[in-house]
Design a protein around this nucleic acid. Structure first.
Lengths: 405, 405
DNA sequence: CTTATTTTGTGCAGTTGCTAAACAAACTAC
DNA sequence: GTAGTTTGTTTAGCAACTGCACAAAATAAG
């Protein structure tokens, strides 16, 4: 008796198949057969089930092989279910519906300050999301909200939310779920809707890994300077590295200067204060407008003044040097095979690639950092798509959840 | 059709059961039933198979429940197979046979310098191991060698072997396997023997996680000052975190001082040069004997002079402060739920616990480091036991490998 | 155009890894 | 001694595959 651990919480075969289709790695049935290592008969059963669940369409017409009978194409169903994704940041929020394959079906962004009262923060986002969902007429597999704070796992509470002012322990997941419930949003077949909360850079990393520039990476490191503050994330073997309590990868508090500026975390020289958008604006002497997002102003300043304006150049180069030091340390500890930068750092890399990559290499032991590709993220809505990935996850693990059961 | 991913390379149920028995988490059949979440009938089949494979004995006599029929005890078979573990370091080597449950069946340590010629390095260790195995008369599930170098995965080659002088790319796994082959060591039922190579601190971490003080941790961080140099490791969900190429967790090259001493890696202020045994001896002014392991001398100096001798105290306190800074950074990035220290650091923690823990807390963002237990390892032969865990791993994943097949 | 060759999809029998339920066994509590 | 509790085992049955045979749909060769 050679028992397998089917009873343990491992993804079903249908789930693995759906994930391959979802991430574009199995466009046809024959590709799926090769990737899964099962027989064609089994793949036939699996794809049939996924079709019956309304997730995919099996297009018997077109194929693409060189010889032999062409294989059926596997396409996301145009009327199939969507995930509900939201991203809240200090300067507004965005919501989107994301279908299988990471396609953004509908999207809405709203600018304006977010209520510091946690109870009111998520009401507008949930309202907008519910409106999109009603308009689309498609079923919903789940919801997730990305927030600019560390999010505990399990629990889904926000801690260290410096930029939104939420007190530690704010149950962001439950608050968002409650607002969706109030809006009457239900899951497929009228069931209760699963809901997740996630740190915004973690969401971005998951999105880039599944649908963006991190596809081929087994260990993807992402560091991003978001609206305010800096975050990091690691995707390993297709899933987020969360640490024991969900509080891992606080790249914003990697220290790059023991005698540096004080950070609100109690430390000195954190990346958050040494290489964020505010610091760049401060050093470059750019005018800080109160009514425009700090991130947008920093990006605009870089684009306009680099490398022509000497103050901008000095500020950006210093920023790149400090970011490179932090990246070198993270690469040494985590040994990723790809590094993606987001937010302001993506801009910094685009403008001064040699300087940033040089800083990584020069601060790496044995220069190992030079061997790791450092690139910019490619998704326009990485945070939303990543949040959607999290919402899709239960179905990607076990598509049979969508059955009547 | 609700397909499971049985064909994918996941541990079999028998493997999960064996691992639970092996790590002492399932001493009886009823405990196994609860932990696995399967029926008693299935557990009966599984334990029967493991007994037939000669791995365990099912003791129907004794039990321990409060009420009802007592459950059968599950014990490692006294004549069951063993793993062959070896550890090579700059001052000698050690070999051991380790049975199920992490019991060291036989052990031999030899002091004396290791040959710098990779081709000759492993011959004495393989010879000693083969002798132990012949004397025991037990079958062998596999072999593993722990080395003081980073080990690539896959490939099993050593890189950055500063302390043994092996050139980068030395195929330590294949060299050790070849020496074992030359000694006529075979696997169970005369099959070829599986062989692994692993970094010494990684081995220590795996050992402490499975059989030592890291049992209850989901995310175990280990940092150790070994014979020379400093290493780190992370065990997550029961397996080593290796990074994309096996080169992760180089804790020895975490920088604790951008303007510190130069390290041979090309960086400055690495833990390797700022808080290793040599640095401690140097600062404390202890006499350095050429014929005694540096690690032993440092430990002896600490035990004799702390806190009485002011030079020793100053050196140790400085070392603790720098180690604390490095640990705080690692804790921030990795969010472990337990930290274990090995080698000289274990001694440092035993002598100055408050100082070291205080340094961790004070350098942690929001003082999160204070919430993570920092303790010393408890295994006498952690590296050997951890290497043995790696050698056991294929059988722990799928015990049916031991069948005739 | 016909005929091989290659590749793919499907139906069916068979194997395997479980579960569920019924029963027997071995202990404690009263 | 009897009742209650927990455990091991037997049996039937189902679900998730595999392996094989055969048909279908394309390209390549004659």
């Amino acid at each position: 008796m050679d028992l397998t651990a089917a009873t343990l919480a491992s993804p079903t075969l249908a789930g693995v198949a759906l994930t391959l289709i979802h991430t574009g790695r199995a466009p046809t049935r024959s590709a799926l057969t090769r990737q899964l290592g099962v027989t064609r008969a089994t793949v036939g059963a699996v794809t049939g089930e996924l079709r019956d669940l309304g997730l995919i369409e099996v297009d018997a017409g077109a194929g693409g092989g060189r010889q032999g009978r062409p294989s059926h194409r596997l396409l996301p169903s145009p009327a199939g279910p969507v995930a509900l994704a939201a991203q809240v940041h200090p300067d507004g929020f965005a919501v989107a519906l994301v279908g299988l394959g990471g396609t953004v079906v509908a999207r809405r962004a709203v600018h304006g300050p977010v209520s510091a009262d946690p109870a009111r923060t998520f009401a507008p986002a949930a309202e907008a999301a519910a409106a999109l969902l009603r308009a689309s007429g498609r079923p919903c597999v789940g919801a997730a909200v990305a927030v600019p704070a560390a999010v505990t796992r399990p629990g889904g509470t926000a801690v260290r939310a410096l930029y939104t002012g939420w007190p530690d322990g704010t149950p962001v997941r439950d608050l968002f779920a409650a607002e969706l419930e109030r809006q009457g949003v239900r899951g497929a077949r009228g069931r209760a809707l699963g809901c997740e909360a996630v740190n915004d850079v973690n969401a971005l990393a998951l999105g880039e890994h599944r649908q963006g520039a991190g596809r081929d990476a087994t260990h993807l490191l992402v560091v991003s300077a978001e609206h305010r503050g800096v975050g990091g994330a690691l995707v390993r073997d297709g899933a987020l590295y969360a640490g024991s309590g969900g509080l891992a990868m606080e790249a914003g508090h990697v220290s790059v200067d023991p005698d540096g500026r004080p950070c609100r975390c109690g430390n000195r020289g954190c990346l958050n204060v040494e290489a964020d958008a505010e610091r760049l604006l401060d050093e470059a002497g750019g005018p800080v407008a109160a009514d425009r997002p700090v991130l947008d102003q920093a990006v605009a300043l870089l684009r306009a003044g680099y490398p022509g304006d000497s103050r901008v150049r000095a500020a950006a180069d210093g920023c790149a040097a400090r970011l490179g030091l932090a990246l070198a340390g993270l690469i040494n500890v985590l040994n990723p095979d790809r590094v993606l930068l987001g937010g302001m750092y993506r801009e910094l890399l685009a403008l001064a690639p040699a300087r940033l990559r040089g800083a990584v290499a020069s601060h790496s032991p044995w220069g190992v950092g030079a061997g790791v590709p450092v690139e910019g993220g490619t998704l326009a809505d990485g945070g939303l798509i990543g949040a959607a990935e999290l919402a899709w996850q239960p179905v990607l693990d076990n598509p049979a959840l969508l059955r009547t059961a």
